[in-house]
Design a binder for these strands. Structure first.
Lengths: 209, 209
DNA sequence: GACTGTGAAGCCATTCACAGCT
DNA sequence: AGCTGTGAATGGCTTCACAGTC
């Protein structure tokens, strides 16, 4: 357990830095400065250094950072030095897209199962996963030692599904439904609201009209 | 053009308040207090009042807010008192899911077209849209007076597609690709990075191990 | 000379607390 | 009495600026 609280904005940027470093590795770069990282991802160089300073000293003064070394450090900090088992609940358009999204697996998230309540959908093949019944939730979570649940069901079922996931032992929830979920403080919860993002665009467009 | 800068966090919450108010309307509620809204969406009541105060005085002291009235005001503030024409570029898993997502249309975003570069996908039917060729981008944007572009292509094509959209006259971009896009300051840009969200969960899970 | 690591300053958002209405 | 609207206080993140190191 960390002694100091890390700003969420910092964690988000670390994730972005790590991807940029991966790109640099592919391009064969050996070292990189905070200024170059800053430039590559669109923040200030002081910001990059401050973010890294929360976790230690990774660079060499006068030189910069060793790309591959910093990359591995960041992956470790982000908890991506091992894989997480994940379950998706809801196999509609969004759930299916998430199940098929290569990016998750690339970054260490195993999609172990995808569930739905609709009999017409159960049994459908999505890549190498078959949509299973919601009834299987508890036993699948236990069987695969699943730590992360992804909620892609309609708003009115979101809280119910959340409780089933927590009951089964899931410790973190990524919620794609447009509903505020109530969970105990020990559960890690994040919301991704697709409409909200479009509405922020709309607000800014409306400002300049 | 507004004189004061509004925090993005405030805009995000206004969007959430507006959905909660819609829910209250469905339930037949007539008035609501800042405390009730706060409770419903998981923020403090002072926060709700501060957010609203950026835009005017909408309530009655001692009473609260009239639900339907506040709802309409928020929709107007968010620029959702009319519809926005939108184009999606990239008809892979994610792009297709977005095209079929009912939530966008519900909140005033017309998906006018979806494009891809892959001939094997062009012509596919998605709901009542047919996937069209990327070549059509410029003419479709002009023809439908499209203001918003949604990017759902692989990272290595994201910047190129962005430039085509801006060239064609699009004023706002919602970017789902994991790549930092360079645009001029007059363009409204938002990034939705699905992996980053999972990685923030991962970070928090790793903390408590 | 170049670049990191960091205390201090500055800035922005949230919370507090209360005056003002109904 | 109840609830809004808001100036003041607080807290937290970002930027500045420079000492320290290679």
């Amino acid at each position: 357990m960390k002694a100091f609280k890390i700003p969420e904005a910092t964690v988000m940027r670390l994730s972005i830095y790590s991807r940029y470093l991966h790109q640099l590795m592919d391009e064969g770069e050996d070292t990189v400065s905070s200024g170059e990282i800053a430039n590559g991802v669109g923040v200030s160089s002081a910001q990059v250094r401050k973010d890294l300073a929360y976790f230690g000293e990774f660079g060499t003064r006068g030189v910069g950072y060793k790309v591959s070394e910093l990359y591995l450090q960041l992956m470790k900090i982000l908890g991506l030095d091992h894989r997480w088992n994940t379950i998706i609940v809801g196999a509609g358009k969004l759930g299916s897209a998430l199940a098929l999204y290569q990016g998750f697996s690339d970054r260490g998230f195993n999609i172990c199962a995808i569930l739905d309540i609709n009999p017409a959908i159960i049994g459908n093949q999505l890549g190498n996963l078959e949509v299973q019944s919601l009834d299987q939730l508890s036993s699948l979570v236990g069987q695969h030692q699943i730590q992360i649940g992804v909620i892609a069901v309609p708003a009115n079922h979101a809280q119910d599904v959340t409780e089933q996931l927590l009951q089964a032992g899931v410790k973190a929830i990524l919620n794609f439904s447009p509903r505020v979920l109530k969970v105990t403080p020990d559960i890690v919860l994040r919301n991704v609201d697709l409409s909200v993002n479009l509405e922020i665009l709309s607000f800014n467009l409306a400002l300049n009209r």
